[in-house]
Design a binder for these strands. Structure first.
Length: 288
DNA sequence: TACTAACCTGTACG
DNA sequence: ACGTACAGGTTAG
């Protein structure tokens, strides 16, 4: 059994419960004082009380985005009283930086689904296709590698509960394995270019592309517009961002995104996270 | 180009 | 109980 220990001094300003329970990650579970999470080929154990992060891999990703100046970012997104209120109610809510492949597959699997179901499906995928490891005295399954999912039998993907998304997942994994989707390139390039690449993948539209970019590809101006965010805009921003129906067309989506970034600025994605969290909590939606 | 229905699957509601 | 609506959308027509 291997394990690496890191100290983390920022837990006083990060609220892990808020951050994990805000719809951005799915493969996390809470122990007594410790959160356990799968991030690609890594397993993390986080104990806020002792400022400890333990990881399965030697050089874990900086999932907490410690390089971000959160004070400055929050100041920057607080453009109106709605966001101000959300920030006030959920102090310490942060965007997490995820393993890109896991994030990409997770959100493809999320389409037209709900959080409980998405979690179940992703756990099934890991159990069936991921490597089993022992860590912190427990068993975990790592997230499957692109090559494994690329050559998976569709029947095995279906058995995980993916439904019609099974072929999306397989095609998406093939695109990564073959190099036509290159996450390192997508990280470096701009929002528009990355988005154009992602929406070419069968099963990825505007919303899912925005999730992947915001949560794993350093595009903090991505602002996923799902049903909840449409509700938020209709409820609090009907003057600023008028929307007629509950579903929006591709063109409307793009137009809205431009206006949103114009309003909230380059860290618009952070504002989305606070607004999403706020509205889901108001409606008492479950996270786990 | 713009709008609608269909889509796997589980659960909540009447 | 059993049918229907809906869920963190996308695609095909």
């Amino acid at each position: 059994m291997r394990q690496f220990l890191y100290k983390m001094n920022k837990f006083s300003e990060i609220n892990l419960d808020y951050s994990i329970n805000s719809g951005q990650v799915f493969l996390w579970e809470k122990g007594v004082n410790t959160w356990y999470g799968i991030n690609g080929s890594d397993v993390l154990a986080i104990t806020p009380k002792s400022n400890q992060i333990r990881s399965f891999s030697e050089n874990p990703m900086d999932i907490f985005r410690q390089g971000d100046n959160s004070k400055k970012i929050i100041q920057s997104i607080t453009k109106d009283k709605v966001v101000k209120n959300a920030v006030k109610h959920f102090p310490g809510l942060r965007l997490l930086r995820q393993d890109p492949f896991q994030c990409y597959i997770s959100f493809i699997a999320s389409s037209n689904s709900n959080i409980q179901k998405i979690r179940l499906v992703l756990q099934n995928l890991c159990r069936k296709f991921g490597t089993k490891v022992r860590f912190d005295g427990r068993e975990f399954y790592l997230f499957p590698e692109p090559g494994i999912l690329a050559k998976a039998e569709e029947s095995n993907l279906l058995a995980c509960g993916l439904g019609y998304r099974a072929k999306f997942v397989k095609e998406a994994a093939i695109a990564v394995k073959s190099g036509s989707i290159d996450f390192e390139y997508l990280k470096k390039t701009n929002y528009q270019t990355a988005k154009e690449s992602l929406v070419k993948i069968f099963g990825i539209g505007n919303k899912i592309a925005d999730c992947i970019m915001l949560f794993s590809l350093e595009k903090l101006d991505a602002f996923p517009l799902d049903r909840w965010m449409i509700r938020v805009l209709q409820k609090y921003y009907s003057k600023k961002f008028p929307i007629s129906s509950k579903t929006i067309t591709e063109k409307t989506y793009e137009k809205l995104h431009n206006e949103i970034v114009h309003h909230f600025g380059p860290y618009a994605g952070y504002s989305q996270q606070f607004l999403f969290k706020m509205e889901r909590e108001l409606n008492e939606k479950k996270w786990l």
